[in-house]
Nucleic acid binder design. Structure first.
Length: 420
RNA sequence: GGAGGGGUGGCAGAGCGGUCGAAUGCACCGGUCUUGAAAACCGGAGUCCGCGAGAGCGGACCGCGGGUUCGAAUCCCGCCCCCUCCGCCA
């Protein structure tokens, strides 16, 4: 949610920034300004009447105590009561309409968010190899056919060594993050609607989200939702910031708009596990924190020996909550191209305002803080990158040495049928 | 799933139609006293919105949302959360 005061103070700047997104949010902003003026006027009228009602009401109370006749004041109060209600109702209606519209406005993009096209910032590693794709390499260790029988398309059974590899990846990532000050968290994955509004997934990505109508709960697409809500409604001590969390959870996505995209293998599935970073920081720190999250993501893929590139995402591709977003795209030899494996967003005060997460500096008043999120390891896509980049001619797969201490196999055997 | 009891300021806890933004205690901040500290005493302190250059003024907030009433922390309804007992259960 945008800061109403900022909108009032600098409407033109906000409008110009929003119009970069290329949607109709700049027009909705103007409607917000209109509604705001109407609301303030109604509010002022209602409060004036309410003040009158209160003082008259005090007179009645005092008069009764002293045994005076209060019928005249009481008559006036009876008519006042109706007026107060009517004006109060007007003010409430205006405010409700204002808030509803305000909630649909996306975050103001950062000035350095890429303009019309995604901007490739750098390529790290040798991104030229091609080879077999992960399904071929994994063989029955990724079992899509039986999973489809069980649950439909875009589900998988992960089996055998790949399970040990996943667990090693997760442990390794959590240990690394813990060393960098992130507290590991396993959050609920079923949440109320409010948490999705608070993080800006609603209204915006409704067709991506699983809903359980019997209990009116939603399956989260990322633990970001639960991590952001961890401090909802709280006023944190600025001295305790930054607060950093590493969430580990399954993630659920309907992929309803994905059409026939990425139907092979586990690149785009309805359920996958992910280690997610989430930071609560002071506003001046969020740009630096964003760089820090990106650096951790790069460190992870460097240590996993996966070639990748870093992309500054264009304004019109930012989600509603992000002011700026970087993706890391890993080189996938099986597809012969770069594909998204992580994403880190600076959501500035957008989520914090919706979730009412504030901080207090020494002796100061509460201020809205900033929140950021970033993928550490999205397991299924990271597995693809490891398999395809680690493959040898014979179909066996070398695995990065960093994972061995966490229980990963040294290598994966070939799933290819012997030619002899 | 069934039965009952609760949600009040940082915490504990009164209030149960008007004088209540709310007693009292603890914690907190400032002052007096003291060489310093403790104790004692005095004083202060919440969040949000509107108006105002500002001092300030007005309004809202006793889990959340409605309702009754001239007037609601107090009465009624719905929802959320917590606790106890029974049932079920990894």
């Amino acid at each position: 949610m945008l800061d109403l005061r900022l909108i009032r103070r600098e409407p033109d700047a906000v409008r110009a920034a929003l119009s970069r997104r290329g949607d109709d949010s700049a027009r909705r902003l103007d409607r917000v300004l209109e509604l705001d003026a109407r609301w303030r006027e109604a509010q002022r009228a209602a409060e004036g009447l309410r003040a009158e009602q209160k003082s008259a009401s005090d007179q009645v109370a005092r008069g009764k105590r002293e045994g005076q006749d209060v019928s005249v004041t009481l008559d006036r109060l009876k008519s006042l009561s109706g007026e107060v209600k009517a004006h109060g109702e007007q003010a409430r209606a205006a405010e409700a309409e204002l808030q509803e519209l305000l909630r649909t406005l996306p975050n103001v993009p950062d000035a350095t968010a890429a303009e019309a096209e995604d901007e490739v910032l750098r390529v790290v590693g040798d991104a030229s190899r091609t080879g077999r794709d992960h399904l071929e390499l994994a063989g029955e260790r990724i079992d899509m056919e039986r999973a489809a029988r069980l649950s439909g398309t875009r589900f998988s059974y992960l089996r055998g060594d790949l399970v040990m590899l996943e667990l090693a990846l997760v442990q390794w990532a959590l240990a690394k993050l813990r060393g960098k000050g992130f507290e590991p968290v396993i959050p609920p994955v079923l949440v109320r609607e409010q948490a999705l509004y608070g993080t800006g997934f609603l209204p915006d990505t409704e067709q991506q989200i699983y809903h359980l109508p019997a209990d009116d709960l939603y399956l989260v697409g990322t633990s970001e939702v639960a991590l952001a809500s961890l401090h909802a409604g709280e006023i944190l001590d600025a001295a305790d910031l930054p607060l950093r969390y590493a969430g580990f959870s399954p993630c659920f996505r309907r992929e309803a708009g994905a059409g026939g995209k990425d139907t092979r293998g586990i690149f785009r599935v309805h359920q996958f596990d992910k280690v997610e970073m989430f930071s609560f920081v002071e506003p001046e720190e969020s740009a630096a924190e964003h760089d820090r999250l990106l650096a951790i993501e790069e460190e992870i893929f460097s240590e996993l020996e996966v070639p990748y590139r870093v992309v500054n995402i264009a304004v019109d591709d930012l989600g509603s909550s992000a002011a700026k977003k970087y993706d890391i795209e890993a080189w996938l030899p099986g597809q012969g191209r770069f594909r998204e494996v992580t994403s880190t967003s600076n959501t500035t005060d957008f989520q914090a305002r919706r979730l009412e997460i504030r901080m207090r500096r020494e002796g100061g008043r509460p201020e809205t803080l900033h929140t950021l999120n970033g993928t550490a390891v999205a397991v299924s896509r990271t597995l693809i990158a490891l398999l395809e980049n680690g493959q040898r001619e014979d179909g066996s797969i070398a695995l990065p040495a960093v994972l061995a201490p966490y229980g990963a196999p040294a290598e994966l055997s070939s799933a290819l049928r012997s030619e002899s």
